[in-house]
Design a protein around this nucleic acid. Structure first.
Lengths: 332, 332
DNA sequence: ATGAAAGCGCTAACAC
DNA sequence: GTGTTAGCGCTTTCAT
């Protein structure tokens, strides 16, 4: 229907200058008389000309687009992270090529290929999983690769919340409230942060005389949390969850089995997803600074230097109503 | 560190054929003897050669990437839709350039420019908002633009769940359960589906003698649902919500004010986000077929023909535990 | 300040 | 079946 998009040649012809001049004024570089500048701008405007980023990319060897591979975009923590990444990328004039892998090794490799083929300037891997599979390959693809939400591996830079400290923060909160029988609902070892969070909880429990810890299996989703409640030892009054989704499941399970939160059991999550404010009761949790994670990730991925130093960001305890002093009664 | 990426010339040299032959075997087109084929493949393998999609795009005038603009990726309904879109795009060998606009007109225009500049083959706008702003401009950008989750406007094709029928389904469910005093918590008019859903609820209520409807303001998020409860007329026993987030808010508000769901009031949502299965009680809702929406959207956006016919998909009632016959007692 | 021309890495006629 | 070559739409020396 509409004619083919105008090219730089069309603009040059219409404004009576060479393509070189058009390029110069449009790229904002030096040169170009005020007069030429006017005419070029007018012509471009009139033709609704938009320079082809693909031609430019071929010439410049830079696409000004970043690749983003996410393991599970349906886990609410990720949209939050993706949102931060997208905002920062856009602000810097970068496009974002999105790939969702659902933790499938084949799809992960396919995603890497898709991104490399399209010559992205950098790749951000937002993963909850270990990404051990193609780690080595990723290091050698010639563009910056940054792992966000998992530690650095294989010489790749990682940007993550201090997992162990965060988990310790959570457990310390419960311990500080007087709870002594603590349970931790973890996630499969394939989740990069699982081990560190278990360690953090253990650190806290070990530091308090008389405190006991029970570690239960979960799956990083609501379902696993709900199921873990079945195996919850009788005396437990405080549960540290791998993440908020798990915590929601634990609260759900507790509710089904007639126990009240926080009256009978205190529950604390990790991530601070949006929904955490809206659970019944609102969930106490450890907030991950997704904005800073996103900003940093883009900064690194867009940078020309391949930085391999990992970064740990500080988690923050957000106290809401799912935790309470042990034995503390509701005071209506 | 690593050398520059190998080009087709390198592969040609290493395999002793011309670049044309390399192109032919790698593009899987006809021609090329078995012998040549072997050598090219071997060379490509050895060099870890990956054809440049940008060079190819320049030549072919097709990037095999689609643009996806989302209004609010943090609303859990969208990740679900994005996931479906991404899966279908990937399956067809398309890349997905993601833009989040947070319903900001400037960002929306910037996103459109970003996508057009990068010469995407098609654009999918996954919006809950009306997108009236740049609708006209979108029609003229020369690539297929499909609106998913909102009706067609300005000659653009829309792919959406039958909003009115869906809402009617929800209200009919409540009415069928014997509820007569119905409330509908809607969303701002800027949400494309708001009016249709109000109409659907109204259709249902009008068809039943003695049924009454009260429409309350919401904001399509949890917050608005919670606030709407304050204005809930005393006799209301059934609430149809604009979406699941709103329903979660309504249940939250009801709980705070001491009313039980579904014992005192039945609540039904719309979307069937993942979390709906996990609320207390699990939420009865209207499911949108996000998989089919995503598939269709990609199909259309990737197609060369600019289809302007809109499509309506069938919503589906998912009965869980937040709705119950009026006056029905809990039977423990 | 400006233009001519080479070239980024591919594909597709067109010859042979 | 295979090679030569002309672009795709830009940017950037290098002249002028």
């Amino acid at each position: 229907m509409s004619a083919a998009r105008p090219t730089i040649v069309d603009v040059a012809a219409r404004s009576g200058v060479s393509t070189a001049t058009v390029s110069r004024v449009l790229s904002g570089t030096h040169g170009a008389s005020a007069d030429a500048r006017q005419r070029v701008l007018a012509a471009a405007e009139a033709l609704d000309y938009r320079p082809s980023a693909v031609a430019r990319a071929l010439k410049l060897r830079s696409t000004r687009t970043l690749g983003l591979v996410v393991t599970d975009i349906e886990n609410p923590f990720f949209p939050q992270l993706v949102s931060a990444i997208e905002a920062e990328a856009t602000a810097r004039g970068y496009g974002l090529l999105l790939c969702n892998t659902t933790d499938d090794g084949d799809r992960e490799l396919a995603a890497l290929h898709l991104l490399v083929d399209r010559r992205v300037d950098g790749i951000i891997v937002a993963s909850s999983r270990a990404m051990r599979r193609h780690g080595a390959r990723m290091r050698d693809i010639g563009v910056p690769v940054v792992l966000v939400n998992s530690g650095g591996v294989n010489g790749l830079a990682g940007i993550e919340t201090a997992q162990r400290r965060g988990a310790r923060l959570a457990a310390d909160h419960l311990l500080g409230l007087g709870h002594r029988q603590i349970a931790h609902v973890t996630a499969p070892r394939s989740n990069a942060a699982a081990a560190a969070r278990v360690a953090g909880v253990r650190d806290a429990v070990r530091a308090v005389a008389g405190a006991r810890l029970e570690v239960l299996a979960g799956d990083s989703r609501v379902d696993g949390g709900a199921r873990a409640v079945v195996d919850l030892p009788a005396g437990v009054t405080g549960v540290v969850c791998y993440n908020d989704l798990t915590a929601i499941g634990v609260m759900r399970g507790l509710h089904s089995s007639g126990r009240r939160v926080p009256d009978d059991v205190s529950v604390i999550g990790f991530d601070d997803i949006d929904m955490a404010r809206w659970t019944v009761p609102p969930l106490t949790t450890i907030r991950q600074p997704t904005d800073r994670m996103g900003r940093l990730a883009v900064e690194r991925a867009a940078g020309e230097s391949v930085v391999t130093a990992s970064v740990e960001l500080e988690p923050e305890l957000v106290i809401r109503e799912s935790t309470r002093p042990r034995g503390g009664e509701r005071r209506d």
